[in-house]
């Protein structure tokens, strides 16, 4: 808690909202902020540790935000007017995972079961969004190292559904989910003798493509699972 609070405190010092690009960090930071704001005991306990680190903050009024939240709730209008290259004909499955939307009392936006903010963003970018029921199922990231078998199974279920629904790629907003879905794809393919070749891309990349940024600039060539088939479709 204190470690997450440190980041929150650093942001508060500069009076800036904290924007997290990873769901886990977002969740932990939001939780730390909530504790700092609402729980007096916790506030005192954590503050003592923070001041040990040379950080003294007496009150917290910033917000912890997430990339999807900001794109969907702050930049919607800006994006609408700047879409240059609508992603016609691209089918995407939006995967939210656990910590972006749960638990609701900490994250407090969209839904814990069938959230739609990322879907809406993708539609705005011109992509077709498949009806992805596994959008908030757990990918097993946190137990990947210690319970590999089970984690891979969980990941497999998600890949299976996306493939079945005919998605060209999975869109997500968390590096740990990405680790599991992208970096472990090869392991899963080997283990279960299947073939996915399913590119896993960040929501920021999708938005970037629609804005007309060059795929190179977006780092689309840095993916482990090749994004070429996806990019070919956009052209």
């Amino acid at each position: 808690m204190a470690m997450a609070a440190r980041n929150v405190a650093l942001a508060q010092k500069q009076n800036l909202d904290l924007l997290a690009s990873c769901s886990g960090c977002y969740n932990k930071s939001a939780r730390a902020l909530k504790a700092l704001q609402e729980d007096k005991e916790e506030f005192e306990r954590i503050s003592a540790i923070l001041s040990e680190m040379g950080l003294d903050v007496s009150a917290y009024n910033i917000r912890v935000r997430n990339v999807v939240d900001v794109l969907a709730n702050e930049l919607w209008d800006t994006l609408t007017s700047r879409i240059r290259k609508p992603l016609k004909g691209v089918k995407v499955a939006c995967y939210y995972g656990c910590l972006l939307t749960r638990p609701v009392d900490i994250t407090g936006w969209d839904s814990p079961v069938f959230p739609i903010s990322m879907d809406n963003l993708c539609r705005l970018c011109g992509a077709e969004v498949v009806d992805f029921r596994g959008k908030t199922k757990c990918c097993g990231g946190p137990i990947l190292i210690s319970q590999e078998e089970i984690a891979l199974q969980l990941t497999k279920q998600i890949l299976d559904e996306a493939k079945e629904k005919g998605a060209d790629c999975i869109v997500l907003a968390c590096p740990l989910c990405d680790t599991n879905l992208e970096l472990r794809q090869a392991d899963i393919e080997k283990k279960y003798n299947t073939n996915y070749n399913l590119p896993i891309v960040y929501i920021t990349e999708i938005v970037g493509l629609a804005l007309g940024l060059s795929p190179r600039k977006l780092g689309m060539d840095k993916h482990i699972v090749s994004t070429k088939p996806l990019l070919a479709k956009i052209r």
């Binding site: 656990c98 749960r102 097993g140 137990i143 210690s146 969980l154």
Partner: peptide, 12 residues
Amino acid sequence: LWLCSSCYICTT
């Protein structure tokens, strides 16, 4: 304890 992946479904 060690199988829990902190997915927060229960809490939700």
